[in-house]
Nucleic acid binder design. Structure first.
Lengths: 232, 232
DNA sequence: GTATCTTTGCGTAATTGTTACGCAAAGATA
DNA sequence: TATCTTTGCGTAACAATTACGCAAAGATAC
């Protein structure tokens, strides 16, 4: 039984949000995808997302859907772009406000059998063809991540709270797809004075263990309000 | 008589586009605003915009509304951000996909009595308080313009086809709100080899007239596809 | 016609920032 | 105790940016 109780003078599109979720593990950038359980695109992988409720804005919608479909919450999330092509959804006129999220993968090891029908982390090099216009959305999200990581300290959102400089460099090299000089990278990062030294080293490796650091978010906030610019 | 012929199973927001229109004249950045003729915010200035039709995407909607309300067409236009706060429009749930446009002011001298109820160019320093959340949209558009002009050749969109280097420098100084060295600016611009020298100078000034140049859009397109990056 | 004024247009020096790379120290293993 | 790998700090070479001197052009004043 279908009840069409919501009537308007002019036609309206449906509005959804979708969220590209980036993670980083074992020197690889990863993407969390959901296998669609219903038509259209049943069995095809897609970004988590869903319809906007009337009592929430699009940020809230994106966070809610992210939590409902993957269990992920309290992460970095940012609006990417709004996709509105007339035929982007076979169900009818649907526009989507796309977001991207950066996740500390260690915090959210998704296990099969969550309320997420079927959520799975894919290495960025092995992304299948996606539902709707999600291939296009992904391309845009990757571009945004690659350019933004160079002038805003968002890379830290993909690492554990404590990380080493080699780990951070590995992250930058992976996302920027180029090698960086170890000593110059260290210099540039440290001279921002935004890393907190934990006076503690990696143990159990057959060589000198790297020191642990964490990112000083509060100090960055203060500095950036005074016009400081983070750049790698 | 009201006809509510469009009925849906779930409630849907209305979707609009709004467009922040920048112009540049007499060493000043300007904004084209429309005085609203109907409630809500009757008599208050706002950006041109309107409701999305079902057979157009948001880019097309923004361009259509821009033309209908101001007569402006074939200009640079780019999506800015989607604003979706629950109470941003007193008429009900309306989300707007905001755009910004860059206009060669000489091409579009708006005269009163257009089908635009009342369109007027305002110097950026004398913008009145705007309708809806348009003050917020403006702040975001200004930030976008200021950062984007440094790494993409969009400044030329605000000048006439032919312009002089002092004019271009004046534009950059106005938008970036800082003085630039005349000789270094000239050097940086010219060594991109993206300006076409028209072998013609400004006449009728009581001193040496500056040479006219125009921007080589095609050459830029070719170069940027090969990885070239415009930076000021 | 000549001097003067303002602004354009081109050069070079001083400074700063980026890139390349040598080497000692730490921590484990042989 | 020697060896191995990786971290962590320094300094030299190079490139880019900034500062600024000065001649030339085009108009006006005398």
């Amino acid at each position: 039984m279908e009840t069409n109780n919501y009537c308007y003078e002019y036609p309206r599109p449906s509005v959804t949000t979708d969220c590209v979720i980036f993670g980083f593990d074992a020197g690889e950038l990863k993407l969390l995808l959901i296998e669609r359980g219903i038509e259209p695109f049943k069995g095809i992988w897609a970004f988590p997302g869903g319809f906007l409720n009337m009592e929430e804005n699009s940020d809230e919608c994106a966070r809610r859907e992210l939590f409902e479909e993957t269990g992920i919450e309290n992460v970095f999330i940012e609006q990417l772009y709004t996709f509105s092509d007339v035929n982007r959804d076979p169900r009818g006129r649907v526009i989507t406000v796309a977001y991207y999220a950066l996740v500390k993968l260690s915090d959210f090891k998704i296990q099969a059998g969550d309320d997420a029908q079927s959520a799975k982390w894919f290495p960025i090099s092995q992304i299948p063809s996606l539902a709707f216009d999600h291939n296009l959305i992904l391309r845009m999200a990757l571009n945004r991540l690659r350019s933004k990581i160079r002038y805003q300290p968002i890379g830290f959102e993909l690492l554990s709270e404590k990380f080493t400089l080699p780990e951070l460099q590995n992250l930058y090299e992976t996302i920027l797809e180029k090698q960086l000089d170890r000593r110059n990278f260290r210099k540039k990062i440290l001279e921002t004075h935004l890393l907190i030294d934990h006076q503690e080293s990696v143990k159990g490796v057959p060589h000198k263990g790297a020191k642990y650091f964490s990112f000083d978010k509060n100090k960055y906030k203060t500095l950036s309000e005074r016009g400081f610019n983070f750049e790698i």
